[in-house]
Design a protein around this nucleic acid. Structure first.
Lengths: 167, 167
DNA sequence: ATAAACTTTCAATAATTATTGAAAGTTTAA
DNA sequence: TTAAACTTTCAATAATTATTGAAAGTTTAT
C-alpha cells in the first residue's frame, strides 16, 4: 500500500465512521483529510481531493468550524482561505465528546427527567414507566458526567483512567 | 402530562436517539416500548401501538434479537409470539457497548493499523500520515478497551468507576 | 392432509438526507 | 467604483435509507 492508497483508505474509512460520532460522510472526510495534511488546505484543494462540490465543501467546513474542530487560517498575501484541524487526538476527543453531550445527550436527559416525573396514579403501568425512565435517566446522566470528567482531564486522560481502573 | 403522553414522549425521544447508538428509529422505538411495558408484547401489539407495518415490525424485532437486546417469549397455550427486552439498564448498556465495538470500532481499528503500518518513504507527508493514524489508532484502541472493561464489570460499573475517578 | 394462525421475505415505494451548481453575496486591490 | 477573486446560500436533484404490503413460508391443531 503506497501513500495515496493509504491516505484514501484512511479518509474513506474515517468518513464512513462519521455516523459513530454523529456527523455526515463529507464532513468526516474533510476532517480526515486535514488531519493528515502537512499544511493548511484551501477549499479548492479539498474539493479536488475528495471530488465534492464547492457548495458541499463550504457547508461542511462551516459545520466543522461550528463544532470547533476546524479553524480558518489566513495566509498573508493569499486571497484564498485556508483550513486546519485540531491535530491532537486527545483534544479532538474532548471537543467531540463535549459537543455530542450538548447537542444530543442533554436534551434526552431533560425528556427522561420530565417523563419520569409524571404523577404516580398507582397503576402498574405508570409505576413501570416511572421506574424504567428513572433508571435510564440516572444511567444516562451518570455516563454523561463520567465522560465529561474523563475528557476534561486534558492531559493523557485515557491512560490515567485506565490505570485507575486496573489497579 | 398523563401516562399515554409520557409514554409516547419517551418512545419517540428514545427512537430519535437511535442514531446515537447506531440503530434505526423503528428499532429503537420498539425497544423503548418493550422497555416500559409491564408484560411481553406481540407483533400485533407493537404494530398497533407504533403504527408501523407488520414487515417493519418483523424485521426490526429480528435485528433487536440479533443484538441480543430482545428475546422471544413463548406463552403456553398462545399461538402468537411475544417479545421482551432486557430490563436492566446496566446490562443493556453492556450489550450495546459490546455490539458497537464489535460491529464498528474493531473494523476501524484494523484499518488504522494497516494505514499506520505503510512503509516510511522518508517524505514529510508519509511521516505525517503514519504519525496521525497511529495516534488515532492508539486512542481508539485504548478508548475501546476502557469501555469494554467498564461495561464488563457487571455490577454497578458506572458508580464504581466514577468513585475511582473522583477520589 | 388440510386449513387456520401466524411470521418472514423482498420488490416497490416513500421518506429522509446529502449533494450539486449557479446565482447572490462579500472582500480586496487598484 | 469597478471588477476580479473568492465564499455562501439554497432550490433542485440525487443518493441513501426506511417502510410498506402482499405473497410465500412456517407451525400447530384437528
Amino acid at each position: 500500500m503506497n501513500y495515496e492508497e493509504a491516505k484514501m483508505k484512511f479518509v474513506s474509512t474515517w468518513g464512513s465512521l462519521g455516523s459513530l460520532w454523529g456527523i455526515n460522510k463529507a464532513m468526516a472526510q474533510i476532517q480526515a483529510l486535514l488531519f493528515v495534511s502537512t499544511k493548511p488546505l484551501s477549499m479548492e484543494d479539498i474539493m479536488e481531493d475528495l471530488k465534492i462540490s464547492r457548495g458541499n465543501t463550504s457547508m461542511n467546513l462551516r459545520q466543522l468550524m461550528d463544532w470547533g474542530i476546524v479553524t480558518k487560517e489566513i495566509i498573508p498575501g493569499e486571497r484564498k482561505e485556508y483550513f486546519t484541524t485540531e491535530k491532537d487526538v486527545q483534544e479532538l476527543a474532548r471537543i467531540i465528546a463535549k459537543e455530542r453531550s450538548r447537542r444530543e445527550i442533554q436534551p434526552v436527559i431533560r425528556v427522561l427527567k420530565d417523563v419520569s416525573s409524571i404523577k404516580d396514579d398507582g397503576t402498574a403501568k405508570t409505576k413501570e414507566l416511572i421506574k424504567q425512565t428513572k433508571a435510564l435517566h440516572d444511567l444516562t446522566e451518570t455516563a454523561d458526567d463520567m465522560i465529561n470528567r474523563l475528557v476534561n482531564q486534558k492531559q493523557n486522560w485515557i491512560t490515567k483512567s485506565l490505570l485507575k481502573l486496573i489497579k
